[in-house]
Design a protein around this nucleic acid. Structure first.
Lengths: 235, 235
DNA sequence: CTATGTGAATGGGTTCACAGCT
DNA sequence: AGCTGTGAACCCATTCACATAG
């Protein structure tokens, strides 16, 4: 397995969501055509995306919803538990923690903030700890079932890099960054150097930035002639 | 102006954020190299992206922060007011409405929900109205300075399409969708038909989906060999 | 000499046509 | 016959090299 377009991964997530929907409606069979229509892509795209990972259908028949769903869950790594810590428990962090139906065994195991008013409060059953406890907490959990797999950054933009640094320094390999700032995959002191420092090696950063979404939307509304039927349909 | 990669727009938003940062630090000049490093892209990319819209630099010198910032603000359409309604005032809708420093004149002018416990409450100075008032509200504001330019969808996924339909039916041309569902650019009854119905013509949909972000992150952590230095750096 | 702006080349993602099962 | 799976064609975004301006 090598060389898979990142956009394909985003689409797989969409296909999976559609399959869940179909299963909830007791639909047991589907096709590349059906999936394509529901995902707003072409049937070619659906088949190609799936082909990166295997052969999940039956020629002449289509796909079995349950089978394809199971396979996509496996491909995406959603049949295992992912333990998450959140840094920044302001309104955004709280909204994330309390978002309903975080299906697929994403478990929030730690919540951190630096604000005295928040430290000690309880959010979704977690006592908010001071961020300076993060490294200690992560190392404490390292060899237990509560091992920290990902960190979510929900702090103000000016604290984003420091939060990322704290996570990476503690050994966390995956970051979902909600702060409107570009996380530099290197230590701050070394910014300017292009070498990725050792502790940042293999760290994955995903961004979720709704302020950017607002601004893109403004642009596209002003420039509708750039007929982007999908704009960022699959982000 | 024609044929601009959608990814370029995402990057412009990033460049603008960097320019704001530089301005706040009283840095008055920059270069494609400097911007590239801060945005985690190549200098070629920066220059090409800017070239789609004009010539903003001085050869041999670089860019003036204030000038480039002003030009990007203009290009992105952020020197005008954008009036926004939010549908869905649960935790997510509230977090969005209260997010600090929604700079650049995005103004929340209406908040809607169908839940009786929420209707009538006040969020960021707005009285939450019942969603069935949406069309009336939008039409009432249509020819006033409070004209609705965009709608944000922050409802549960099963209500996403209905919320979009309500917005489009009311004449709103831009949708920022936070619900984990693919909005179909057609009326529900006509789903299955490929023609985009009249009222959906020219409607722009942008998606912000953090559940999808979590799932992509899980995949990339499991498959680090797909060395995606940027994964979805610019979404 | 420095750094932008841009036409040309490259590379990779999407589209296509059809081969391959059922 | 029907629909998947896939090598090849195509197309478009990124990369590059260099001409241009200061």
């Amino acid at each position: 397995m090598a060389d898979i377009p990142t956009a394909a991964i985003s689409r797989l997530v969409t296909y999976l969501r559609i399959l869940e929907q179909l299963e909830a409606q007791d639909v047991s069979r589907t096709s590349s055509n059906d999936l394509a229509e529901r995902a707003n892509v072409t049937p070619f795209q659906v088949r190609k995306d799936l082909a990166y990972f295997g052969r999940f259908g039956t020629r002449g028949m289509g796909y079995t919803v349950a089978v394809l769903k199971r396979e996509l869950v496996r491909v995406l790594g959603l049949n295992q538990t992912w333990n998450v810590v959140i840094i920044g428990m302001g309104r955004l962090g709280q909204a994330i923690a309390n978002y309903p139906a975080t299906d697929y065994r994403f478990e929030y195991v730690g919540a951190f903030d630096i604000h005295p008013d928040l430290v000690g409060t309880t959010v979704r059953g977690l006592e908010v700890q001071h961020t300076n406890q993060l490294a200690h907490f992560v190392q404490q959990q390292a060899h237990t079932p509560g091992r920290v797999d990902m960190g979510f950054i929900a702090v103000p933009p000016e604290s984003g890099q420091a939060a990322a640094q704290a996570l990476v320094g503690a050994g966390v390999k995956g970051i979902l960054n909600f702060a409107p700032v570009v996380i530099q995959p290197r230590t701050l002191e070394r910014a300017g150097h292009h070498e990725v420092s050792e502790e940042w090696h293999g760290v994955i950063i995903e961004n979720v930035d709704f302020l950017a979404g607002m601004k893109r939307l403004a642009f596209y509304i002003l420039n509708p002639q750039l007929k982007i039927t999908d704009s960022e349909e699959h982000l």
